[in-house]
Amino acid sequence: MEKRVTFRGWLLPFLLIAPQVAISAIFFFYPAGQAIWQSLFIPDPFGLSSQFVGLGNFEFLLGDRYYRAAFGTTAIFSILVTVFSMIPALFLAVTADRLIKGSGVYRTMLIWPYAVAPAIAGVLWLFMFNTRVGVVSWYLGNLGYDWNHVLNGGEAMGLVAVASAWGRISYNFLFFYAALQAVPRSVIEAAAIDGARFWRRFFTIVLPLLSPTTFFLLVVNIVYSFFETFGVIHTITSGGPQQSTTILVYKVFSDGFVGQDLGSSSAQSVILLIVVGLLTIFQFKFIEKRVHY
């Protein structure tokens, strides 16, 4: 879509667009280009010179046991986060939607956690499950279950996934609730007159009508779990134990800043860049469809 009425002149628009173009160039395009460039080199241990290795870094990464493991970890983690955050949100939204009065109050109570930073969420959940002082781990111990996410990789994964999903429940709730409110009352009432009970109405009418929202949230939550959960993982497990919670973004950080392996870290950035690109294209394609739904 274009405007029919525009203003003349070219100096003014250049000046107007200059700040954004400059910032994008300096802090976005140049670093992204650097990442691609550096991914083709291996710097020597002293950082004095570097050797061109072509796609060597990528070849190494794809053959690397730890990197492949990080891919698997990311997949499991993002599935867990998506499931843990979307299903409770859908339940709460469906319940709230059945209330005529008071749902606004519940909504206010439920959007709180969205404002809590992932890193803070990490601290709160770490506190509950702390092996020495945690309340939940203490009660689990009393029930005969010895909780120890510091040693047990599976428990560590569960904990970071739940802590990451927690704040997202609010977000998903808002979208599900808005979508439910938009379902035409008359359709539901017609089904009710025809004798369809709640669950039947839910599965045959409501859920299909929610599918665009569900699909949209699926993509958004996966992107969230890929990139924005760094704070949760860093505060709770720092990627451990034995890298069992090292997702791809965490590995870019730990190889680049802790391990100082710039070539590999850059190559990982480039791979992530491709992954984000694909996810974005996927999302845009879907949004095109959503308009015509």
Binding site: F28, Y30, A35, F227, F230, V249, G256, S265, S269, L273
Partner: peptide
């Protein structure tokens, strides 16, 4: 398309 998390090392250098 590109969150800052993905380009941290070069952005840090800049």
């Amino acid at each position: 398309m590109l969150p800052v998390e993905v380009r941290i090392v070069p952005t840090y250098e800049v």
